[in-house]
Design a protein around this nucleic acid. Structure first.
Lengths: 141, 141
DNA sequence: AAAGATTGAAATGTCAATCTTG
DNA sequence: CAAGATTGACATTTCAATCTTT
C-alpha cells in the first residue's frame, strides 16, 4: 500500500511539475482553497487540510503568493489570523493542471479498476479518514 | 485516496521515530533489505525499491551505516557496484520496530476492514504496482 | 561511451523559539 | 498566558556534475 501511494504521488508530482511548473503539494493547496467557502481558508485550517505543519504552510503560501496564484488577506474579526485566497490566476492555473492530474490518475490508477471496484475503494478509504483516533494527532480533519 | 495514505504514513513516521528513532523511510529500507536474497541488495536496486533517487539512497545508507544497522560491501563481480547488507543490529532494530509498525497499521487502517476486504485491497493495490509504466500517455497536452 | 555510485548546491519541510493579538 | 502565524536553524531529498569501472 505504501508503495502504491508513493508511486502515484511521485508520478503526479513529476507530470504536474513538468507541464505546469506546479508541484503536487501546490496543486493540492490550490484545489483545497478552491473547495473552501469563497475560495479562501485560514492559514491554520489550510495547513491541517493539506497535511503540512504551520511553518511548512507559511512557506508554501509564500511561494504561491510570489507566483501570483494566491493572495493573503487579514481577518477583520481576528487580527492574529490570515486568509489565503485563490486569485483568478490561481484558478486558471488550477484548471489547466487538473487536466494533467486527471490524466495521470486515470492512466496510473483508475485504469486498473472497473466502476464497481472504484466505488468500493472509495468506500473503504473514507472509513479510514472519517475516524481519526488511537493517538492524539495534531493534523486531522 | 491520497489523503488516506498521507495520514497513515505520517502517523507511522511519528510513531516509529518516537519509539525507535527510526523514520519510516529507514524502516522501509531495512525491511526491503530483509526481504532481499541474503538480506542484501545492490544500491541501485534498493533505491528503486524504496522509491528514492540514487543520491537520496546514498545518503540514507550513510545514516544507517553510521547507526550500525547496515554495512556496505563491494561486489566481487563488478567493482562499480556496492551491496547494502543488513547487520545483526539492523535486524534486531527492525524486529523491534515491526511491533510498532504493525500496531499503527492495525489501529489506523486494518481495524476498519474485515479479512475479505483486506484481501481485496491487497489485490487491487498490486494491480497498480505491477504496471511499471514510467511515462503515461500525454493526454494532457 | 554507458552504468553504478557519490558529491555539491539548492529546494522543501520540521521543530523550537518568537512576535503579535485575544 | 493561549492562539495564530512566522522566522531561524537544521534535516532530508533531488538535480546536475563528477568519478570510477565496464
Amino acid at each position: 500500500m505504501l508503495q502504491t501511494h508513493a508511486l502515484v504521488v511521485r508520478e503526479l508530482d513529476r507530470q504536474l511539475s513538468l507541464h505546469h511548473a506546479l508541484p503536487v503539494r501546490e496543486f493540492d493547496t490550490l484545489i483545497t482553497l478552491f473547495n473552501g467557502p469563497g475560495q479562501r481558508l485560514r492559514m491554520s485550517e489550510l495547513a491541517s487540510r493539506v497535511m503540512l505543519s504551520p511553518s511548512g504552510l507559511t512557506r508554501l503560501v509564500e511561494r504561491l503568493e510570489r507566483g501570483g496564484l494566491v493572495r493573503r488577506e487579514t481577518d477583520a474579526s481576528d487580527a492574529r489570523s490570515f486568509y489565503a485566497v485563490l486569485t483568478p490566476a490561481g484558478l486558471q492555473r488550477l484548471d489547466e493542471a487538473r487536466v494533467t492530474h486527471n490524466a495521470v490518475i486515470r492512466e496510473l490508477f483508475a485504469r486498473h479498476f472497473n466502476d464497481e471496484e472504484l466505488a468500493r475503494l472509495g468506500t473503504l478509504w473514507r472509513k479510514v479518514i472519517g475516524n481519526g483516533d488511537s493517538t492524539p494527532s495534531p493534523a486531522a480533519e
